Simulated scan of single mutants.
Amino acid sequence: MRHDRGVCNLYTNKSTVQEMANLFRTPATYGFNAPADVYPQYPGIVVREDQGQRILQQMTWGFPRHSTNKRTGKPNKPTATNNARDDKLWTIWRQWFTDPAQRCLIPFTSFAEAEGEPGKMTRTWISVADQPLGAWAGLWRPTDEWGDAYTGVMVDATKELWDIHDRMPVILHPDAHDAWLRADAKEAIALVTQYPADRLTVERSSEPWFKKRS
């Protein structure tokens, strides 16, 4: 059963900082560990460019989104906009999408979608069969609330995945990493495409969708 949330709310990155540094050609000395499970408003690792050199950086997953309590009229605590729709890149995301310095790569080993009846949903994991560590196209910016934060770009899912979810992350081919981090917006938008379903691996699990976060 498809679960129409329109977003990705959980992914894993089971690689070490050293493995990411090797794969993405960044310096290898960092004072943090890579969290294996990444949830919105929690820390994750991204790859970005700084003065012409790639770096790994720990950031919060999700741009802060503010709302007002209808009953009290007071501001609520910010929530996370952890995905950016591809059809909004030229509008609400334009400020960051059109600036190559604000684009990033989000390393991941698999992302999760929820399947099943409400209250009984389980985690279905999707990974990239032809890449040991995938790169999800992302955007990042400084925030007052959480420091530097990032969001991942989403596109319509391929028809083969439609029974799981109607959206999927924009997974970049390795030879597109440089372009996403450096190219102008007209070249970068051409990279915002579906990853072939026959190069993805789907693994259904008995893990409950909602469980205690470690």
Rank of each mutant, 00 (worst) to 15 (best):
Q131E: 15
Q41C: 07
W61K: 07
V153C: 11
K88W: 01
D144P: 12
R103E: 00
R65S: 10
R71W: 01
M59T: 05
S67H: 04
S127A: 14
K74S: 02
E117K: 11
R167I: 03
T91K: 09
A84H: 01
W96M: 05
L161Q: 14
A149W: 04
A80F: 02
P100L: 12
T124L: 15
I106Q: 14
Q51S: 14
N83W: 02
A112R: 08
M59Y: 00
D86G: 07
T151V: 05
G138I: 01
T91I: 01
G116Q: 06
I171S: 11
V47G: 09
R54Q: 13
D87E: 13
D50L: 12
N82P: 00
K88A: 13
F108N: 14
D87C: 13
F63Q: 02
W140S: 10
D156P: 14
S110Q: 14
I45H: 11
D50W: 03
D87W: 11
T98V: 11
S127P: 13
P75C: 00
D148N: 15
T81Q: 05
V153T: 09
E145N: 09
V155E: 15
V128T: 15
F111S: 07
L56F: 04
W136S: 06
N69E: 00
G44C: 12
S127H: 06
Q102T: 07
D50G: 03
N83V: 02
C104L: 08
Q58I: 00
H165F: 04
P107C: 07
H173P: 01
W140Y: 12
A176L: 05
A135I: 02
T91C: 03
R123M: 13
Q57A: 10
T151S: 07
V46R: 07
P43G: 02
L172W: 06
A101T: 05
H165N: 04
S110R: 10
A135P: 09
R71V: 04
A157M: 13
A80P: 13
I92F: 04
H66C: 03
V128G: 14
R71E: 07
L105Y: 08
Y42T: 10
P118N: 09
E160Y: 07
E113A: 05
W93P: 00
R123E: 15
D130H: 09
K70W: 01
Q95A: 13
V170R: 10
G138C: 09
F97E: 06
P107V: 08
Q131Y: 14
A84Y: 03
A112L: 08
L89I: 04
L105V: 08
D156G: 13
